[in-house]
Nucleic acid binder design. Structure first.
Lengths: 241, 241
DNA sequence: GTAATAGTGTCTATGAGACAATATCCG
DNA sequence: CGGATATTGTCTCATAGACACTATTAC
């Protein structure tokens, strides 16, 4: 792949984590306050450099997840989102970052990590509207991550990852409504979800509720790919390539 | 993101190209014969290292496309497929490769490039079955690329990229049949494609044909996202997460 | 009982899929 | 005309979406 004398340039490899969760029926993303330059004090995605030359990229992602966000590595599935490597995206030099997407159920506030002065969940809406300013190109990474989550809700069982081990159908509907940003009909949603092969399976019988009829509980089913898929109304799927 | 004394490891950044096309109604991928070690003489995806520290990754992909495959940069849209960076995937050291996917219409045999002893289109089937042995982890990259193409056919207008500037509906059907690997009903396909908003638009009237009624010609329509999507029968979409 | 949420039944419009029938070219 | 491919029509079944209705809890 190369000539005789020429040697290829080297780059620094980093990982960034887009961790989404639902809080008060709204989509939130985990951000940390940077404790070091560059962008010291600014909000950023959890992440960091590869630790040593033999570390697997996905392992680095899991490590940062534990270090910076104190989240349980076991319960979060990480999915590769993409590579962000424009020259100039990081003033320290040529840094190429591999972004991962993870979905978390409702969790306690994560504790601040080693080199993060603060950490917390922020509403995704504030990021997308530009209300919050983020370090590096992290706003774009989050935009891509949210878009990925939106489409994955359609044909995969991702939505159950937002919920705890057991959940009601209404819980699941709240996930779809929050991520897609549109209301859904509870009656049709109820039947659609139950008819989708392997999506959810009954777990236990009834459940406490302050008011109204107690709902049945379900667990995530065996299938990760949904067939038929959940379909998002046309208007809500308005985007380009 | 780092301690005081510690410095992060560096990696070599490469790009690899999965270029798919249709030849004789079968899906083919562009491979080159490696002219240098490692894996000298083996088949591999076109690709190579970043040329200099300021080169954009996508620019490197376009450059390799021109250098190694002599394909027109303008007509091929490249889509990021993923990152492949396992330690040990390349004996030269820690090489992280960004894979891109491109779809090409029927094209003349590409010429051999600078450091490729030979280049040519190979049936994807031979790669997937393991009939052909490839360098590095390129078999996996191709597997991922083909799977991406299969799903993108459903909800994007990608299929038109396999065709020339104008095409018949039968041409388009051949694309779907080759990539999905299943036969489709011509009558239903015809109406489905025409009913899908912005997918194809009429271009010119009739066309030469050795036999049978001449078909109408079409061009790619304005939409890149298809709504409603083309749906792949359940059996052909059998995969896991 | 009322309020509130969970779950069921039913109707209608639309679309997928099967497949017969017709159209338009070549020779 | 016959052969071949393109295009249209029609029928049937499944499903999305709208929405009335019933069920089960707390008070």
């Amino acid at each position: 792949m190369t000539e005789d004398q020429w040697v290829p340039p080297v780059v620094l490899l980093a990982v960034d984590l887009v961790i989404l969760t639902l809080r008060r029926s709204r989509l939130h993303v985990l951000l940390v306050e940077r404790g070091v330059e560059p962008y010291k004090g600014a909000l950023a995605l959890p992440g960091g450099f590869l630790q040593h030359a033999e570390e697997e990229i996905i392992a680095a992602a899991h490590r940062e997840l534990a270090e910076e966000a104190d989240l349980d590595v076991e319960t979060l599935r990480l999915e590769q989102l993409g590579v962000y490597g424009d020259p100039g995206r990081d003033p320290r030099g040529r840094v190429v970052s591999v972004a991962y997407l993870a979905i978390a159920p409702r969790l306690p506030e994560p504790t601040a990590g080693t080199d993060a002065a603060d950490a917390g969940w922020q509403p995704v809406e504030r990021v997308l509207t530009g209300d919050l300013t983020l370090a590096f190109d992290h706003r774009r990474i989050i935009t891509d991550g949210v878009e990925r989550a939106r489409t994955k809700l359609e044909y995969s069982s991702l939505a159950t990852a937002f919920c705890g081990p057991t959940f009601t159908i209404t819980d699941l509907q709240n996930v779809y409504e929050a991520v897609w940003g549109i209301p859904l009909d509870p009656r049709n949603f109820y039947r659609k979800v139950q008819k989708t092969e392997g999506f959810i399976v009954p777990a236990g019988t009834a459940r406490r509720s302050a008011t109204g009829r107690p709902a049945r509980l379900f667990r995530a089913g065996p299938h990760t790919a949904l067939y038929p898929p959940m379909v998002r109304p046309a208007e809500s799927a308005a985007e380009k390539e």
